[in-house]
Every structure is written in C-alpha cells, then in structure tokens.
Design a protein around this nucleic acid. Sequence first.
DNA 1: GTATCTGCAAATTATTTGCCGTATT
DNA 2: AATACGGCAAATAATTTGCAGATAC
Lengths: 151, 151
Amino acid sequence: MHVDSLKKELKERKYRMTPQREQVLKVFIETNSEHLGAEEVYRYLLSKRINVSKATVYRTVDLLVELGFLRKLQFDEGVYRYELVDKDNRHSHFICNSCGKIYELKDALSPEAVLKDYTELLRTQGFDVKELDVKFRGICPKCSKKGRKEK
Amino acid sequence: MHVDSLKKELKERKYRMTPQREQVLKVFIETNSEHLGAEEVYRYLLSKRINVSKATVYRTVDLLVELGFLRKLQFDEGVYRYELVDKDNRHSHFICNSCGKIYELKDALSPEAVLKDYTELLRTQGFDVKELDVKFRGICPKCSKKGRKEK
DNA sequence: GTATCTGCAAATTATTTGCCGTATT
DNA sequence: AATACGGCAAATAATTTGCAGATAC
C-alpha cells in the first residue's frame, strides 16, 4: 500500500524514511483524504498522541507533494489544503458560497473529459498542459433547501 | 466608464466616494487588469507618488470585490490577486510551472462554454453553480523552447 | 560515522484590526 | 454635524527558517 511506496520513493531519491513521514501520510489515508490543512494534520496527530512538531508537518506535506503523494489545493480561505493523489480518480470541486463546504465531484462525466478537446487545442499552441484544476462555486443543495424554509 | 459606475454603486450602498477608492480602481484599469496583489497595487501607487496606505489598499480591493468590480484570484503562491471583472469576457488561466507566468485564455472556444453541459448536470443535482474557475498548469511555450536549447 | 531529519523558537510574509484624527455627504 | 473613511502601528495567521541535538542508513 501507500506506506510501502513511500519507503521506495524516498529511497530512490535518497531521502530517509522516518516515523513522522509515515504518520503524516497515514493521516491522509485514515481520513479518506479529506482536504486537510497542515494545522489540521498536526491536530489530528496530537489527538492520537503521536508527537510530531508543526514544522515537521509543514516540511512533510511539502515533501509528499514533491514526491507525488499529495496534491496541494487552495480554496480561497488563506490556507493550503492537501489531498491524496489518486491517479485513476481525478475530480473537481464544488465550493458552497454559503456554508463553505467543499464537495468532490467524481461523476463519470468529468470536466476533465469534457475539456479534453480544449486541452488539445492549447497543446497545438505550445502549452504543455500537465494539470487541470476546475472549481465550481455556488450554493449547495443543503443550503438551497435551508434558504427556502428560513427566508 | 468604470469610475462613474463606482461612484454610482457606492452611493447606492451608502458607501462614500473617496480619492483612494478611485485611485485603486484606476490601477486595475491602467494596467489592463493584470493579476495584481494588494502589495503590487500599493507599490504602483507609490511609484506614481499617489499616497495611499497599505491598509487602505487591502480594505479597498475587498470592497471592490464586494461591489463586483474586481474578482479575487489565487494562484498557489500565498498571495491573493485581483483582476477587473469583465462580464462579457470571462477567461481561464494557464500557469507555467517553470517560470510562474500566468496567461489569460480568452479563446472563442472557452472552457466555460465547453463545460456548460456539465454545469447543467450539476444543477439537476441541486448545485446552483454561480461561478466557474478553470486553471491549467504545465509548461508554457517560452519555457518549452528554452528547455530544448539549454538541456 | 555522517548526512539527513526533527523540534524548538524566532523570523518572515500576507493580511487584518483598533484607534483616533480627517474627510465626505 | 454625523458618520464613514484613512493612516498608522500593532496584532494575527499561516508558513518558513536557523540551529543544535537526534536518528536513519
């Protein structure tokens, strides 16, 4: 599983495997890769009595991004968030302007698929597209319902 | 032009028109709405010997977002950037992983148009989509050329 | 054994806030 | 005149860094 490939990847790049690195990666696996910020990872570990300093968490998530285990995200709140990279399951996000909840959109009809032609066009213009980031913003179903009752 | 509608909009919402607000908005008009951060707006004004404090710049760009004159952007650098809202000319961005340059993609075949069907699908599921944010990342034409020569 | 890694505390960066005098309406 | 606004400096929030001791290899 993930932890083994971390060991392998670290060795290949002449980094060292440490308990802290394993623990940080495990947080993302155990939480089903919620969109966690560094602070949250730190608190999660604290709550499980696992001692890792905040600086190490910051350094480790950065490293995990570099190694391709995590993806760095931003949702307009002044915090970086991270999620597990899952190559077969790319997804977009829907961010509710009312409650702030972030939904993952994993539908078969992925925006990535829909945008394929446009990405191709960019390539013909010399843009080598490696990544695509699509975010929808608006009001989520829950907030729409609430709004109807309350107002 | 823009400055007049700012006056109008401020009056409607019972805010006041001030020289600082006019100057900040003008920066975005004069620079063709580059993707400026608050600090850059501040420096631009300084360079033109226009005295506005940094705090005011921060407060003003926030206000201009609220009033719908600016759009708040994030490009994964730890800084908020802003651009003029131009309703008839929405665009996506291409961010070069090598030089960091941000390109605006204004092609006729806009991702927004391509994604329309998918947005519609979301609506049927109760997601009221108000905004769409599409970012491409990769290597830009210039860096691709450089890479070929140097490496 | 040695180079990498961690923890701590201090530094840095971007942004926000409180307060008080100033300007707009 | 009343209230909103701006400037300043201090506060806050998130993240980064320097360094000395600890640990993986």
